[in-house]
Structures are given as structure tokens and as C-alpha cells.
Nucleic acid binder design. Structure first.
Lengths: 193, 193
DNA sequence: TAAATGATAGAACGATCTTTCTCTTTTTGC
DNA sequence: GCAAAAAGAGAAAGATCGTTCTATCATTTA
């Protein structure tokens, strides 16, 4: 075989495609970005693209997979940084705020994707639902470990607040949303001050 | 002139176009809906459409204008129903919850539109910004009238919560979001229990 | 070195997109 | 009833969409 591979084992062309698609899909929207733009930015030809992916739809799913993996990775790194559940909660809330402020200034990739995919049974919407379920469940486990007696309710509030922070950060500017988010999130998580 | 007009004075063809476009744009997304679908649903020909609108973009703005007018109308009706600022706040929060539960089950038209229009200077994004500014300002005035000493902060929290309710209601189901929204909104507005 | 396979290059498919055009029919105002 | 203007009907432009194809080149493995 003549497939160029990365140290991680996957093809370099495929990784460039996913990276370019992720960047473009997030910054400009999914339906607004054509295959030509993606392969152009990736420096790859159409034939190469269609050898790695059955179609554009699969590139969308790969994009959401990358976003999902990034957030899960951030949670794992936070979990390795401390053993104290309370402190972990603080780190998570700080991390979410930092993420909205620096990385996700165009809103939430999953919320934005869902806006373009009305069919709840589509693969994209299923991926969105799975991500949200994971996020909610992880928060609930964290809150339970921190001794929160109403972890399920508090987790729901934190999901709510993160959605709002993503949307508000994009449309109103993060500096306008940040104080309301941090205050409400810390209270919802049962943290001091 | 042979323009069929409604009692309100505007052309009936134009109203049908805006109604069909609003329905389709909201339910399926903007880029996903073509002009053919819109004129087909409206029972109007292409020529008629292009005689009333310079292009599709203007139909998008008309759609957001309708949504904006609907919400402003709901606020006005609530204002006519009572003179007590506290009770008015209750009505508004109830109305927002009811709106998400029954009318806006596909998320917020403005948030969804913004997801498809990354350029902050575009007419669509300007319309979104104006709507949000009006909403925030109206809430702040309401809270001030109700005697809230931190009306600006509270208004920001209510905007945050409404965004979250719209998104969460769409992606997680309203029954899952409702308790968190009502509780948090009443607390943010300074209402009892 | 030879066969195999992926990547490159580029044309081309059919479908759909927004927009424009012509022609005919219908409706309205006078 | 007549002239004016809008709506209906449909073709067609030109662009772009996602996708497929046929070549040729480069690289790897046997």
C-alpha cells in the first residue's frame, strides 16, 4: 500500500481532510461549505477525499467526533490534575468558561449542527444527542462524587448554563455573559462564593 | 393595479410567501430550503416571488421580522393584562415557558439563523442582534419597574436562561428543561418560590 | 525489479441552486 | 368595457452542489 500514515497510524490525507472540514464547518456552517472548499483547504483532490469518506455526511460526523473527543480529553486531563471532587468541579467550570472565551467563539458545534439538521433520527442529530447525554452524565457523576445530594438537578442546571454560555458568548460577546455564567454555575454546582 | 390585497393592506401573495418561508425556514433551516419549496408551499410562481422580493435573503429577513413582531406582540398583550410589575414578570416567564413548550420546539429562530450566518455584519446577524438588544432592554425595564436593584444583571440572567431553555427544549425535550428553567428564572427575577 | 495501491489531476455527471426571461391569463381601477 | 398591472406558467440561464470517472504519477511491499 502507498498510504502515507501519521505516527498515530491513520492516513495523513484523512487527517488533513478532517482538520480542514472541522475548521470550515465550525466557522462557516455545514451546508454553507462545499466539498470543493474542504479539499482545497486540505490540499487534497476529490478522488482522495472520496476514497477516504463515502460522502460529505461522513465528514460532518468526523467533525463532531473530533469536537466530542476534544471535550472528553479536557475532562480527562482535569481528572488527572486533582483527586478532590470539589476542586475538580472548579476546574471543570473554569475550563468551560475558558473554552467559550478562547476556542468556541462561534457557538457550540453541536447546537449549531443541530440547527442545520432538523431530522432527529439523522446520524448528526444522534451524535449530538449522544454527546449531550455523555456530558450530562459526566457532570452528574462529578456532582455526586462531590457530595451533591441533588446531582441530577444540578447537572441539568449546568448543561443549561453551558448551552447559554456558548450561545451568549457567540451572539452577545463573552465579556457580557461571563459574570452571569460563572456566578450561576458555581451556585448550581454548590461551590463557595 | 391588480394586486390582491389583504385587509391589512399588504399583498396576499407576499403574505403567503412570508408565511410559507417562515414555516419552512424554522422547521428545516434556511440554507436547506430552496426557493422552489417556498413558492410551491405558498402556491405562487417564481415570477411573483421575484416581483415582491429582491431575493431569498430578503425573505429571510422578513421571516425574522415576523418572529420579532410575534414576541413583541406577546409582551404587549402581557403588559395590557396587568399593571402590577411583579405580576407582569410572572406572566412573562410563564409566557416564555409556554412559547418554548408549544410554539418553538425547534429551538430559537434567531439562534438557529445565527448558526447559519457567521458574518456578524450581515443583515441577518444585525437583525438577530437588534432583536436580542430589544429583548434584553425590555426585560431590564420590566425588572427596574418591579423594583429590582440589579435589573441589568438580572436581565442578563434571564436572557441566558431563555437561550438555554430554547436550546435545551429542542435538543433534550422541554419536560427535561422546564423545572430548571422555571426555578432559575423566578429566582433571577426576584420572584417568590 | 515488478505488481499493487494510494494520491494527483482534471473532466464530467446529474441535480439543484438562485435568478431572469417571455408569454398568457386574470384581476383591478377608471 | 378598457387599459394597466399583477399573477400564472414554464423555459432557461448560469452557478454551484455532491459525486463519479478515467487517466497518470508516486510509493510501498513482495
Amino acid at each position: 500500500m502507498a498510504t502515507r500514515t501519521t505516527p498515530a497510524g491513520t492516513s495523513v490525507a484523512r487527517e488533513k481532510l478532517v482538520a480542514s472540514a472541522s475548521d470550515l464547518f465550525y466557522r462557516e456552517g455545514i451546508h454553507a461549505v462545499g466539498v470543493d472548499r474542504i479539499i482545497g483547504e486540505a490540499g487534497v483532490t476529490r478522488a482522495t477525499f472520496y476514497r477516504h469518506f463515502p460522502g460529505k455526511e461522513d465528514l460532518v460526523e468526523a467533525y463532531l467526533g473530533v469536537e466530542d473527543a476534544n471535550i472528553r480529553g479536557a475532562f480527562e486531563r482535569a481528572g488527572e490534575a486533582t483527586d478532590d471532587p470539589q476542586q475538580l468541579l472548579e476546574l471543570v467550570i473554569e475550563g468551560l468558561a475558558d473554552d467559550v472565551a478562547r476556542l468556541h467563539t462561534r457557538g457550540c458545534p453541536f447546537i449549531n449542527a443541530a440547527a442545520e439538521y432538523p431530522d432527529a433520527d439523522s446520524d448528526v442529530r444522534v451524535a449530538v444527542g449522544q454527546h449531550r447525554d455523555w456530558f450530562r452524565g459526566t457532570l452528574e457523576a462529578l456532582l455526586t462524587a462531590a457530595g451533591n445530594p441533588d446531582a441530577e438537578i444540578a447537572a441539568g442546571q449546568l448543561v443549561l448554563l453551558r448551552d447559554a454560555a456558548m450561545v451568549g458568548g457567540y451572539l452577545d460577546g463573552w465579556e457580557r455573559v461571563r459574570p452571569a455564567f460563572v456566578t450561576a454555575a458555581r451556585r448550581a454546582a454548590g461551590l463557595a462564593g
